[in-house]
Design a protein around this nucleic acid. Structure first.
Lengths: 188, 188
DNA sequence: GAAAATATGGAGACAATCTCCACTTGTCAA
DNA sequence: TTGACAAGTGGAGATTGTCTCCATATTTTC
C-alpha cells in the first residue's frame, strides 16, 4: 500500500500545480467545474490531469488528505491526553466544527465514505480506524460495546452527505448529541 | 401543490408504462442505465420520457412514491396504536427492514433527502413530517425535546447513503440503536 | 367530423469524459 | 558532455450520455 515511487521532477511539479489549483478553487466554492477546463486552469493538458487523478474523487482526496490526516492525528492526540470518554466526545464535536472551517471537506468525506465495492478509499479507511480506536478506548469507560465503529461512521456519513441543507449545522450537532448519549452504556 | 390535472388518455398510458418498466428494472438492480435507452426499453420516445420525468430522481420518486407513502402511513398507524415511545422505536426499526425488502428504495431516499436548494422533494418532505410527528408524540413520554427531527433525518440519510457497504445491515441497526438510546431523556 | 388542444418520438445539438500517441523532457551511465 | 532510454506531456478527437425541438399523430371538444 505504501508506494515507494520516485516521481520524475516535472511530473511532481504538475501534480503539485494541480493540487494547488484545486485547493484554491475548492476554497472559492467551485466544485462543478468541467474536469477538462480545470486542467486548463492549472496549466496542464487533459491527459496529464487524468494520469495523475483518474477521477474527481481522487483529486479531492489528494487535496483534503492533509485535512483528513489532521483529523486522524487529532484523534490520536485526544486519545493520548484526555480520558477516553472525553476524547470521543471532543473528537465528534470537533468533527463537525472542522467540516465548517474547511469548505468542500464534507463533500469529499461523503464520497470517500460512500466508496462502493467494499474497500473504503484510503482516507475513509483511516478515519474509520481513528473512530474505531477512540471507541475501543472508551469501552473501558462508560461506552457500550455492542455497537461498532461502522454505526458511528454511517451517522457521520449522513452528516457529510446532508451538508447543503439549510438547517444542517443544528442537525449535525443534534446527531452528535444523540450518538454520544446513545453510546453510553445502558444501565443493566 | 395538489395538482388536479386531467392527463390525456395516451399520456397516462405512457406514464404508467414508464413507471412499470422502471419498477421492473430497479427490482433487477439496474440503476445506471442510460436514460435514453430506458425510454426505448419502455417503448416510448426520449422526448416523452423527459416530458413526464425531467430527471432520474423524478422517475425514482414516482416509482417509490407508494413505498414512501406506505412508510408514512405506517408511522401514522403506529402512532395510533402504540405508546409513543414504542411507536418511534417500531418505526425506526421498521425503516431499516423496509429498506432491505425494497431494492433501490435506499438510493431513492438518499437522493430525495439530499435535495439541494433547501426545500425537500415531496417524498423526503413527507418522511420528515412523519418523523417529526412521531417525535412530537414521544416527547410526552421518555424522549428528550432538545433534538429535532432533522437530526434523526440526517442519521437516516446516512443509512440510506451507505447502503452499498458490506457491513451495512449491522451498521444500520447500530445507528438505530444509538438513536433510540440517545433520544431517551437524560436523567437531570 | 372538423377544429383545437394535447402529446409523441427520435434526429441531432450539445456537453462532458476520457483515450491515444506523436512528441518533449528528464535521468543516468559511460 | 552526451547519447539513449525511460518517463511524462498535451490536446485533438472518439465516445458516451443528456436534453431540446418540432413536424407529425392522437385525443378531446363542440
Amino acid at each position: 500500500m505504501t508506494d515507494a515511487k520516485p516521481l520524475r521532477a516535472d511530473a511532481r511539479r504538475n501534480r503539485d500545480a494541480l493540487i494547488a489549483k484545486a485547493r484554491e478553487l475548492f476554497a472559492g466554492g467551485c466544485f462543478n467545474l468541467r474536469f477538462d477546463d480545470f486542467a486548463k486552469l492549472a496549466g496542464v493538458g487533459t491527459g496529464t490531469l487524468y494520469r495523475h487523478f483518474p477521477t474527481r474523487e481522487a483529486l479531492a482526496e489528494a487535496v483534503y488528505r492533509e485535512e483528513i490526516t489532521a483529523m486522524c492525528d487529532r484523534a490520536r492526540e485526544l486519545r493520548a491526553t484526555l480520558p477516553a470518554d472525553e476524547a470521543l466526545e471532543a473528537f465528534l464535536r470537533g468533527f463537525v466544527d472542522h467540516l465548517y472551517s474547511h469548505e468542500g471537506l464534507a463533500r469529499t468525506l461523503a464520497t470517500l465514505m460512500a466508496t462502493r465495492s467494499g474497500a473504503l478509499a484510503e482516507g475513509g479507511q483511516a478515519l474509520h480506524q481513528a473512530v474505531a480506536d477512540l471507541l475501543a478506548d472508551a469501552r473501558t469507560g462508560t461506552v457500550r460495546d455492542d455497537v461498532g465503529a461502522g454505526a458511528v461512521m454511517v451517522a457521520l456519513h449522513g452528516i457529510c452527505a446532508a451538508y447543503d441543507h439549510p438547517t444542517h449545522r443544528a442537525d449535525a450537532d443534534g446527531v452528535v448529541t444523540l450518538l454520544l448519549a446513545g453510546l453510553r452504556r445502558p444501565a443493566t
